[in-house]
Design a protein around this nucleic acid. Structure first.
Length: 878
RNA sequence: GCGGAGUUAGCUCAGUGGUAGAGCUUCUGCUUUACACGCAGGGGGUCGGGGGUUCGAAUCCCUCACUCCGCACCA
């Protein structure tokens, strides 16, 4: 037992060593035991080529806390990890790398490029896993999955084919969000709207065969090259006569019809005339279909103008073309006005490129039939979203959901299992067909589009466990219990897992969803590279240790925003050091370990010992309760407060006289040591899910039965440890000590000056207890004598503490002006409170309506205040 | 425009009907042999404004102001 600890806690020395041991011993892997209740959770798979950022650190810390807590609580626990192939993001990364080498992916061709991406994945894919290990994540790495693994790919194909056969996947020509940089379609949720300061151009369109003109407004003049109509409202008197006539597009010099469309046009807005570009605007597209308008594509998939835009513009980038068009408009005197205009512009969330609405042939999921059961599951409580306030957002989105564009014109991802033969037949099948089932042709090519990454991650909770095969893992660990993830992917990921899970496994993919907030900087600003306020979790771990980072994240994990600053982590690194030093102190005295320490006979213990065990017990109850409710902040705070402010600040100080043989018998000493060992053991186990490394390092030295704290049982509250009476007495003693310390400073005495304390105990029992523990008062309040029961001398400082009248006798009688003022403030404050209580207690309504314990409490407080005021007033007498 | 969240100590935030809290910051004192990443003590808030319900409101209701976040966007 007598093992020396270093004076300061040095996380770097121990963390990686302990993690390696845990992994080697297989503690992260659940056992094949169907008897024990099981608990399972799947990781939100990070991008395979990504690096761990602070958001990952948060979400994985929270998962690890729950997982370690459940594992220690006796559940057969699985935390299944893995990575996501992250279609666009990964392709972009590799593409950029190739470009740096002067190679274009188009030079390589699809097959070679995909090989390169796999090489990249092999080379860097393990990095984020290693970083999760640095954080302490107790994932079962033997079950690690990747969304492009064979098994998961099979699940993807199975789901695709099933949805297709059920008519829920279709291929159609439609207007989609197109990213000209990534050259792929993206879904609605991948479009982000950014407020921009742009220009609104007012352009005159001449009416054909007349000298009239109408004015239309647009933010995108380049699209006028693709206009195929002007539209007005059918009820609009101003333009009614123009319906059916033609207008001439300036610059393009082309005739277009003027149509009536009362859906597209709002009479009240602007001039009441709208230019219609069916090939490059969603609303215009719809209007075009209604009015049988031509679709003229003037912008291609790279964002450049097409031949249809005219020879002068062909090949120009769309924004260059805009400038050129505006110049021409000016020359032709067709530009009536240019206004500053603020509006929201859709960009691709991944690359910030402005989205070009484009008509193209894509694959879609008909979503409504999938959404309905997913709405019901949350409404009926089958799936619980925590914090509950997110449910409204979930419903709002799910009830207004649009069909999901799932095809992507990328090379990296699950290729859509649709096959075309030379005769134009299409086959959708799980296994690659050797010949066309319809015509027997063996000239078969597979669809070149791949699936949206979220299509495969939507299957994650069951595809990772072997679905559609009925594997033992699926039977044991599915459905999972909890999903912990950021609220920012509620629609992208959570909603889709719910929809797919319900449809394909017949059960909810998880019972509860905990949505954590977003980590921001200390002023609530979003972290971004441009702002330079990014905190790299690896730097933080290097500097303060993983435990400090984890504890900081946990204690701030409530709410939408989590303000994080290095300074805060520093504060909890100090907590780790505190734990270290308290343990170091304890170990200087401990002479038995947990194995040979024997049981504690609670009835033999003194009040101080019963008090600390009672406090620990209450803390244990709170931590378990808070963890059940995902209140990571309250749970971590409860342990922090107990360990530092009750165990270290008070209990250790109180047992020092006993440990150092200044007070008490050998038997008292033995009991105190046993209780210290007990408190350390339980506190460390309680804290382990939050701070796995330091707790393991110390706990191993306490000599428990289990080979690791990871597999030791999690403490649960035991009623027998609760002791209200001990708490009442120790509260009184600590309050008296605080009062003496307080008055000492106010009167200008030094810690070396010693006084005499008088206590007026009301019952013989209390009196005897104060006598027993007078050594505590003497040591901690630095007194020379405690007198219980005798009259308090007139010249002493009078006060009432925890219901006991006390007097402090100082070596000199002089009272400073400051002290008198302080006493006066005290009296006034008490009088004010008393006045309030007096008024309350004569109020019939209060006496009748308030609960009895409140009334009683008020009476007791009233009595105490009266007494206290009387005593304090004595201090003012000369 | 629709939906949601928020406004509590200098800062960041807990606190869903019964005497206003934490951490950090700040100030004062302390080489008390576990820890200066420490110990002890102090200061600091009309709980965004107004109204209502109630014996009693930071807490429930209404209203106004401001902030933030989704979703949908009118050229």
């Amino acid at each position: 037992m007598k093992e020396e600890l270093a004076k300061r806690y040095e996380p770097a020395d121990i963390e990686q060593r302990l993690y390696a041991t845990w992994e080697r011993e297989g503690y992260f892997t659940p056992v094949a035991d169907r008897e024990r209740p099981r608990f399972s959770i799947v990781i939100p798979p990070p991008n395979v080529t990504g690096r761990l950022h602070i958001g990952h650190a948060l979400v994985n810390t929270l998962q690890d806390i729950i997982v370690r807590w459940k594992r220690m609580s006796g559940f057969n626990t699985l935390w299944l990890p893995g990575t996501d192939h992250a279609g666009i993001a990964t392709q972009m990364v590799v593409d950029r790398d190739l470009q740096r080498q002067g190679i274009s992916r188009f030079d390589l061709g699809r097959e070679k490029f995909v090989e390169k991406v796999w090489e990249w994945k092999e080379k860097y894919g393990g990095e984020i896993i290693d970083q999760l290990k640095r954080l302490g994540a107790s994932c079962d790495w033997t079950r690690s999955r990747f969304t492009l693994d064979e098994g998961l790919s099979h699940a993807v194909r199975t789901v695709f084919v099933s949805l297709y056969n059920d008519g829920l996947i279709y291929r159609d020509l439609a207007m989609v969000n197109w990213c000209p940089l990534c050259r792929t379609a993206i879904s609605d949720v991948e479009v982000e709207y950014r407020d921009r300061n742009d220009k609104l151009y007012q352009i005159d369109y001449p009416i054909a065969d007349s000298d009239r003109h109408v004015t239309v407004a647009t933010t995108r003049p380049e699209t006028m090259l693709g206009d195929t109509a002007l539209a007005v409202h059918s009820d609009d008197e101003r333009y009614r006569d123009l319906i059916g006539k033609e207008a001439i597009i300036p610059v393009a010099n082309r005739r277009i019809p003027i149509v009536a469309d009362s859906i597209l046009v709002d009479m009240e807005f602007g001039t009441g005339v709208v230019k219609v570009t069916p090939a490059h605007d969603k609303n215009d597209y719809e209007a075009g279909l209604r009015n049988n308008l031509a679709q003229l594509q003037v912008i291609d998939e790279t964002g450049a103008m097409t031949a249809a835009a005219g020879d002068e513009f062909k090949g120009l980038d769309r924004f260059e073309a805009r400038k050129r068009v505006v110049e021409h408009l000016k020359e032709q005197n067709a530009l009536r006005e240019v206004k500053d205009y603020q509006h929201a512009v859709g960009v691709h969330g991944k690359c910030d490129t402005i989205i070009e609405p484009m008509i193209s042939r894509q694959w879609f999921v008909k979503i409504e039939p999938l959404a309905r059961p997913a709405i019901d599951a949350v409404r009926e409580g089958t799936i619980q979203i925590i914090p509950q306030t997110w449910e409204a957002t979930y419903f709002n989105w799910m009830e207004n959901i649009h069909d999901w564009t799932i095809s992507r014109q990328l090379w990296w991802g699950h290729r859509i299992p649709a096959f075309y033969c030379g005769n134009g037949h299409m086959t959708v099948a799980v296994d690659d067909p050797q010949a066309c089932p319809e015509c027997g042709s063996t000239e078969i090519t597979q669809e070149t589009d791949v699936l949206d990454t979220w299509f495969s991650s939507g299957l994650w909770p069951f595809s990772t466990m072997g679905w559609p095969e009925k594997t033992p893992d699926l039977e044991t660990f599915y459905p999972t219990d909890v999903l912990i993830t950021g609220f920012d992917i509620l629609f992208f990921w959570v909603a889709r897992m719910i929809m797919f899970g319900l449809r394909f496994t017949g059960s909810r993919p998880f019972a509860q969803v905990f949505l954590n907030g977003l980590v921001r900087d200390e002023h609530g600003q979003k972290m971004s590279k441009t702002k330079g306020n990014v905190i790299d979790p690896m730097d933080v771990i290097d500097e303060y240790g993983a435990d400090a980072l984890r504890f900081t994240l946990a204690i701030f994990a409530t709410g939408r925003d989590i303000p994080l600053a290095r300074k805060r982590v520093e504060g909890y690194a100090a907590f780790a050091n505190k734990i270290w030093n308290a343990s170091r102190f304890a170990m200087m005295y401990l002479d038995t370990d947990l194995k040979s320490g024997g049981n504690i006979q609670r009835d033999d213990l003194g009040t101080v010992e019963r008090w600390i065990l009672s406090r620990l017990n209450e803390t244990t109850r709170e931590v378990n309760r808070y963890l059940s409710a995902f209140r990571f902040d309250e749970a971590s705070h409860a342990i922090y407060k107990f360990f530092w402010h009750e165990f270290c600040d008070w209990y250790i100080e109180m047992v020092k006289p006993v440990l150092m043989s200044k007070h008490g018998s050998d038997d008292d000493r033995r009991k105190a040591k046993r209780v210290i060992l007990e408190v350390l053991d339980r506190s460390l186990r309680l804290l382990h899910p939050f701070m796995p490394f330091i707790t393991e390092e110390i706990w191993l030295k306490l000599g428990g039965v289990e080979p690791s704290i990871m597999v030791a049982p999690y403490p649960v509250a035991e009623e027998v440890l609760e002791d209200r009476e001990a708490e009442r007495m120790i509260d009184a003693i600590t309050a008296m000590i605080t009062t003496v310390r307080n008055v000492r400073v106010e009167r200008g005495f030094t810690p070396k000056d010693r006084f005499k304390l008088y206590i007026d105990a009301t019952t013989p029992r209390d009196a005897s207890l104060f006598r027993d523990y007078s050594y505590l008062l003497i040591e901690l309040a630095r007194l020379n004598e405690v007198v219980v029961g005798a009259a308090i001398p007139e010249g002493a400082h009078h006060d009432v503490v925890s219901g006991f009248a006390i007097g402090i006798e100082f070596p000199e009688k002089e009272v400073s002006k400051e002290q008198l003022e302080k006493v006066q403030r005290d009296i006034e404050k008490s009088k004010k409170e008393l006045a309030g209580l007096d008024a309350k207690l004569v109020n019939e309504q209060f006496l009748q309506n308030a609960p009895p314990q409140i009334v009683e409490g008020a009476r007791a407080r009233q009595t105490e205040l009266r007494e206290r005021i009387a005593k304090l007033e004595k201090n003012q007498q000369p």
